[in-house]
Amino acid sequence: MQAPAEVFGSASPPDSPLGRAARRFLRHRLALVGAVMVIFLLIVAALAHVLAPYDPLDVNTGRRMLPPDGQNLLGTDQVGRDVLSRLIYGTRVSMSVGIVAVSIQLTIAFILGSLSGYLGGKPDMVIMRFTDVVMTFPTFVLVLILVSIVGPSMYNVMLVFGLFAWPGPARLVRGQVLSLREQDFILAARVVGVGDWDVLRRHLLPNVLGPVSVAATLGMAEAILTEAGLSFLGLGVRPPTPTWGSMIGDARFTYVLADMPWLWLVPGVAISFAVICINFIGDGLRDAFDVRGRQALE
């Protein structure tokens, strides 16, 4: 019975909620696989310049549209660029968009959601109506339009996604805070004279972490898919920067779709792989924190 205390450090007692969740997460096999793979993708992204066999922008007119062979392991594209190198560099865009966009999204969601849930009354009503309005626009359409207005670039995709995809997680945080607010331990904290800010920071937010971590994985997957979709349509990250989405975008030409499947299959598998691994983590977290299906769906 002493072992868990050692594993999770003396800071958390043997059966702290966080410790229990961590143990449950580690028992979830797919989630572990997902976590390892996402770490692998992050390393690839960080070391892209070392791992890529060629410069992803290097045009080689002598070796155009070639299927995979010994020299170009995943073939070359219409202007003779190495597909493997472009794939490796594409990891950078997807991973950074995923992480940065989700950080912005969750920061806004946390602030608006907890204010709304904790304050209640008029502020709650105003925030929730605002949320309703933002929610009537599909995130993808909003990001598509705004990015085309402010100019397509990786930073604008991250920023716009972060600024407009918060309604889902914000409602989640609000719901959690609303139900926690009425519980005895919060009342107890109030009775002994803990202030509003400290109640929010020390008692409410830690308890919201579980569901929010699930929302974070969903958000990261959505951000990666949104960037890929935008770049697929030619409206996301500008060429010639290699991104998975824009690589698949070439398949909008029927001759690429029909005769050069390596050009679009490979990045397509890469996106699917990344998103599946992130969703595995999300599934593991959902089980670990015992988040109910309905809340996690939103």
Binding site: G229, S272, N279
Partner: peptide, 8 residues
């Protein structure tokens, strides 16, 4: 199914 991009 929920992880595959619709364009793929």
């Amino acid at each position: 199914g929920i992880s595959l991009p619709n364009f793929f």
